[in-house]
Write a protein that binds this DNA or RNA. Structure first.
Lengths: 218, 218
DNA sequence: CTCGTTTATTTAATCGATTGATTAACTATG
DNA sequence: CATAGTTAATCAATCGATTAAATAAACGAG
């Protein structure tokens, strides 16, 4: 690793602090994670949090901006693909279905990646008490995912009203998100050490087709 | 309100502390909720937490025992109904479906009740870092719900293997649970002040029938 | 019924430890 | 020497826990 020049050293410290703080905040909670614990875990002097970010609260904000950027980066390609499809005059239903499957498959993988565990913990916490950190997350990630999938499902199910489409979208996404949010309980129930991604994907794909291709029962 | 006798006063203090602590722990997190803040919110002397429970950690445990008991009480009737149905030699599929719908309908109502908000926040937190508090919750509530629904779905879908049934159950429950643990994001997306319970129920019922009555696609 | 005693509960005050923040001195790069 | 970054030390505030004193209901003896 090349030795940082003095000016680059500051950026390195910032990055290290954000990365470490993501983990410590997720593990101990905002109040439980002391600036000293974060600094020690990052192998950095405690006063540097104040120097680089201003204070603990500002570091917390910086963590969420970083999470939103990372999520944005991972999903932006897939979201663009859906946008392109929806830009067509009248996309074929089967094409929409495959695109939605691909998108949801990526979401399943994202939910099951170990590295997203800290993110989900922080997002869950923040969602319970929405502050400025949640606004960043919603605008840069959640809102975009919800928006594009709603448009896609709306095209697949023209028989449904606007609110009905939204409700359906939530349930479709819910069966994916649950694998992250209820992970501990699920593991205890299924007796898995690590979840079988392909099996989950297969189930989600099947469900999507059942929920979006079948005509309403009555 | 009748004046408490001296002996009853202790129990009253205990109950008040648990009820208040449920809210404060949920709002501020374990570390964020100081014993002084809890005591002040409960209008009780701070030292009484130590006197009645031993310490902060013990009060936290007591909160989860109370939550588990409340959840148990609310669901035990519905769970018994399912057990009775499953005890029959060969329950009719339609009967199983209706029973599952009824059960899931109750679950939807539970998820949307304002009073369960504190519970869900605490459960989510505890699930991320499972401790003894989570054990109580799983054994008395989650495990029983998962177990009984899995048996029911297994009977409805004899074409699926054991793990496939469990996976299907998780997705079915996930589309219900999501209304609670993604509540803030959902509200922002749907622009609701308060969710339309009947619409959600209708969607969940429709989904259940689509997912559990249709034969596998291939 | 009344008094003194026991018991459970409550209270204010205080303990050492830890918190986030800040300071001034220090280091190294340009 | 100027600047950006780092460091150890210290600040008042707050933390959970504990203490001894205060309060009042419960109880047995007379």
């Amino acid at each position: 690793m090349p030795q940082d020049s003095r000016k680059q050293q500051g950026d390195t410290t910032r990055d290290t602090l954000i990365k470490t703080a993501t983990r410590v905040f997720a593990e101990l909670g905002y109040h439980g994670a002391s600036t000293r614990a974060i600094a020690k875990a990052a192998d950095v002097n405690q006063a540097l949090i104040g120097y680089h970010f201003g204070g603990k609260e500002d570091l917390y904000q910086a963590v969420f901006v970083a999470i939103a950027e990372a999520l944005e980066q991972r999903m932006t390609t897939r979201l663009e693909q859906l946008k392109v499809l929806l830009a067509e005059p009248d996309p074929a239903p089967e094409e929409c279905l495959v695109a939605l499957e691909t998108f949801c498959g990526g979401l399943v993988e994202l939910m099951l990646q170990p590295e997203t565990e800290y993110w989900s913990q922080l997002i869950l916490r923040e969602q319970q008490h929405p502050g400025p950190a949640f606004d960043v997350l919603y605008e840069r990630f959640m809102g975009r995912v919800l928006g594009i999938t709603t448009r896609l499902v709306g095209h697949l199910r023209p028989d449904l009203q606007s609110d009905e489409v939204k409700t359906l979208v939530i349930t479709v996404l819910g069966q994916i998100l649950v694998w992250r949010f209820a992970r501990t309980g699920i593991q205890r129930h299924m007796g898995w050490s690590s979840p079988d991604i392909e099996a989950i994907k297969h189930r989600v794909f099947t469900n999507i087709r059942l929920l979006l291709t079948k005509e309403p029962l009555e």
